[in-house]
Design a protein around this nucleic acid. Structure first.
Length: 423
RNA sequence: GGAGAAUUGGCAGAGUGGUCGAAUGCGGCGGUCUUGAAAACCGUUGAGGGUCACACCUCCGGGGGUUCGAAUCCCUCAUUCUCCGCCA
């Protein structure tokens, strides 16, 4: 959510930015300003009315004390009109404030100046390409066949127990999952992230805080009985640690990491995108979240992007880094790098991480602030990224490392798996 | 799940209808003293709206109500604690 004063002062720049994001309804900006004008006007009237009735109430208090009962009762009559007025005004104010919030929620974040315009993922800029794409023999299998062959991930069994998109990991498959989680967490700790184990369910306020609500509520599993949402990513609980708080700028950058299961309904997905491990309803991910001073958030974004890449290098996976174009950038993000890993048997790139700077867009919703150099309360910047999401890493590992002897485990991971091959 | 008690500023803790946005202590920040530090002393110290700046308004767990007037009374929800029940 953008700040109204920011919209007032930077309308032109915002319009230019939103154009890159293909946001068409720029007239909303003017609506916001005029609704906010109205809000101020009503607020002023209300304040004045309240001030007047407060003053009278004080007078009455004094009159009662000095025994002037008659005059006090006289004064009471005066307030009935003011009371009516302030009641109407505060109702009006409520309506207008709701209106204002609704409008503000419709405006996406303004992209960073480095973001190019574009309509879809096809227009994303490839800014880096690392590693050799492996040459697989003709009889190479896609991962959903390999998982069967080695009996490590059972999609059918998941269907039986729960439904599509909830696989069962077995034997070395389960062990590989655990190895990857520990590998990612250990690396994050070494890179200065504090490990956190958050709840896997969050309340409505938290959903709003990070922006899953109100728009994407259909993407989350919801437990109506208790009004709780299953988290689609650990970003939600981790970032909400800092909701409604004023952090100490001395603590910047605040780095947290968490492993969690993630739950996504993925309504509307289909076809090859959802085959095997490509898209699941429940999956494992280690997330990194950073809260930083606005002046330094882009340095941190580069740092996070580099960190994620070190993981891919250690896992010996060929990858590329994309800078998302305006059209593919998420609603809340100002700049996002996607890391994609090459899945050699599927012959396609799979997104395994998305590292974003939200600037103050999330912080405004969260009311996450700090005291700046002048003692002014200012919104902090939030960033997050996957480091990493497991299923597609597993898919690429299985496909790229298939040999006659079985699936070869990358060296860095062997201390965690305790085996060198899945066979 | 049942019964009872509680929820006040960063923390502790007063305040049960009338200048209470809120005593006091601790902590934080600034200063005096000191070669420096500690101690002591002095000052300062919640958030939001609004204003050029004031004024002014809102907020004492959330929401609603009573009253001329509420942190203080009522309703409701949430959370915490104690006891009972159930249970990993």
């Amino acid at each position: 959510m953008l700040l109204v004063p920011y919209i007032r002062n930077n309308k032109k720049a915002i319009i230019a930015g939103l154009k890159i994001k293909n946001f068409k309804q720029i007239e909303i900006l003017d609506d916001i300003i005029s609704v906010d004008d109205k809000r101020r006007e009503i607020q002023k009237k209300l304040d004045d009315t309240l001030a007047e009735s407060k003053a009278i109430a004080k007078e009455i208090g004094g009159l009662f004390k000095s025994g002037n009962i008659d005059e006090a009762n006289n004064k009471k009559a005066q307030t009935t009109e003011l009371k009516e007025l302030s009641k109407n005004l505060s109702e009006e104010l409520n309506i207008i404030q709701t209106q204002l919030t609704e409008l503000l929620l419709k405006v996406p974040n303004v992209p960073h100046s480095s973001v190019a315009s574009g309509n879809s993922d096809e227009d994303n800029e490839i800014i880096k390409n690392v590693g050799e794409i492996p040459e697989l023999p003709d009889n190479a299998m896609p991962h959903w066949e390999l998982t069967d062959k080695y009996d490590i991930i059972d999609f059918q069994l998941g269907n039986k127990i729960t439904g599509a998109g909830f696989p069962v990991y077995k034997g070395k498959g389960a062990r590989l999952q655990r190895a990857l989680i520990n590998f990612f967490l250990d690396n994050a700790a070494e890179a200065g992230f504090r490990e956190v184990q958050p709840p896997l369910m969050v309340n409505e306020d938290s959903g709003y805080g990070t922006g899953q609500l109100p728009d994407k509520d259909g993407q989350m599993y919801y437990v109506g009985e208790d009004k709780l949402y299953l988290i689609p990513t650990a970003e939600v609980p981790i970032t909400n640690i800092y909701r409604n708080s004023i952090v100490n700028s001395k603590d910047f950058p605040i780095r947290n990491t968490a492993y969690s299961q993630c739950f996504r309904r993925e309504a509307g997905s289909y076809g090859k995108d959802v085959r095997g491990l490509n898209r699941l309803h429940q999956f494992d991910k280690v997330e990194i979240v950073v809260i930083e001073h606005p002046n330094k958030s882009y340095d941190r974004l580069e740092e996070m992007s580099n960190y994620v890449q070190t993981l891919l290098v250690k896992l010996e996976l060929p990858y590329r880094v994309l800078r998302l174009c305006g059209g593919d950038l998420s609603f809340t993000s100002a700049l996002t790098y996607d890391m994609e890993v090459y899945s050699a048997a599927q012959k396609r790139w799979l997104e395994v991480s998305s590292v974003s700077n939200f600037e103050s867009f999330q912080a405004n919703r969260l009311k996450l602030r700090f005291k700046d150099e002048n003692g002014k309360t200012t919104l902090a910047h939030t960033l997050n990224g996957s480091a990493l999401a497991l299923p597609r890493i597993v898919a690429a590992l299985l496909e790229n490392n298939q040999t006659n002897k079985g699936i070869r485990i990358p060296k860095a991971l062997i201390p965690y798996t305790g085996f060198e091959y899945i066979d």
